[in-house]
Computed example of a mutant assay.
Amino acid sequence: MFGSFESHPTHKTIKALGLPTLFILLLSLSCFGHLVKAYVLIYAGCSQEKYAPNSPFEGNLNSFLSSVVSSSSQVSYNAYALGNGSSTPPEGAIYGLYQCRGDLPMFECSRCMQSAVKQIGLVCSNSYGASVQLEGCYLRYEHSNFLGSPDTTLMFKKCSRSVNNDVEFFKRRDDVLADLQSAIGFKVSSSGLVEGFSQCLGDLSSSDCSACLSDAVAKLKSLCGSAAAAGVYLGQCYARYWASGYYAELTPESSHEDDVGKTVAIIVGVLAGVVVLIVLLSVCRKTKRKALLNFLSISSYFLEIITLTFILFPD
């Protein structure tokens, strides 16, 4: 339903994923059940430049990610600057932050950030800069200092089908968007059957937050026009609205839980087919070692395709 994607200009779109991605995602899905929506990937961006293994930057990155997991069980936003002192080589400096959606309880914030840390390591392996936006939380790090710098870069947008000649809908939508512009931090708003929410990064002043959200709302209207549901993510804030339904959904028709169920069903079906194939190979060739190698090769091929589809097209 949604066909538009924008990413940070210094980051590249992910084109391929390793096999371990699938197992981590399935573990998250099976463990968290109805909380799965918070961990659905919205967008990810990775820098072209890569750091060397066992470099000072890698050590500071690991410290940063560990601190994020620990801190997110206590506070929903935090920012970090590591390795920028005189005792550390310049190439080791790292700046980063995380933020959970304002309505998430702390235990869910922590779990969301654990998922974000895993996903950013998988999709942006060895990158000097990376960001991931999940439904419930956001994580970013860079080699250069971006903290506190105004950033209204368009990171991502989604626009649904259009609503034609519905005067009442547009009036309600405009009321919601006007209300969302006044947010300081996180805000939920509704008017009639239209709902929405918005959020700024935790270190923005009220004036900077208002300016960012004003830009986000303007982009919503200009880029998505008469869409029944839309979401715009900028560098330091985002705003979303939709026509009726629970506000964690971008559209009433969308169901990430249904998508997850379908994906898991497909995976189980493929694995079942592969198992049957391996049994046949074992009988025909009577060589367990060859059968095992065939199993690993075939299953890796199919799971790679399924994983890539699941991540890049979550809706």
Rank of each mutant, 00 (worst) to 15 (best):
M1D: 12
S4V: 15
F5P: 03
P9E: 10
H11T: 00
G18F: 05
T21G: 00
I24V: 14
L26A: 11
L29S: 10
F32V: 06
F32E: 14
H34R: 14
V36L: 07
Y39F: 14
G45Q: 05
E49T: 13
K50E: 13
S55F: 00
F57C: 01
N62D: 12
S63N: 11
V69W: 04
S71M: 09
S73D: 10
S73L: 08
V75D: 02
G85C: 09
S87Q: 10
P89G: 08
P90I: 11
A93C: 06
G96N: 04
L97E: 00
Y98G: 01
Q99N: 05
R101N: 07
R101H: 06
P105L: 11
E108N: 12
C112H: 13
M113G: 03
S115W: 00
S115G: 01
S115T: 02
V117S: 06
I120E: 00
L122Y: 04
L122C: 01
C124D: 01
C124V: 01
C124F: 01
S125G: 01
S127W: 01
L134R: 01
E135I: 11
Y138S: 00
E142V: 08
S144T: 11
S144G: 09
F146R: 02
G148T: 07
S160L: 02
R161E: 12
E168L: 13
F170P: 00
L177H: 04
A178V: 06
I184F: 04
V188F: 07
L193M: 08
G196W: 03
F197R: 03
S198L: 06
G202Q: 02
G202L: 03
D203N: 14
D203S: 12
D208K: 01
S210V: 05
S214M: 09
V217Q: 06
K221N: 14
L223Y: 00
S226T: 15
A228R: 03
G231K: 07
V232I: 15
L234G: 05
Y238I: 05
Y238K: 02
R240N: 04
W242A: 12
A243M: 11
S244E: 15
T251S: 14
S254C: 11
H256M: 12
D258R: 15
K262G: 03
L277M: 08
L280H: 11
C284F: 14
C284T: 15
C284K: 15
K286H: 14
A291E: 07
F295I: 01
I305Y: 03
L308P: 02
T309Y: 09
F310R: 10
F313Y: 07
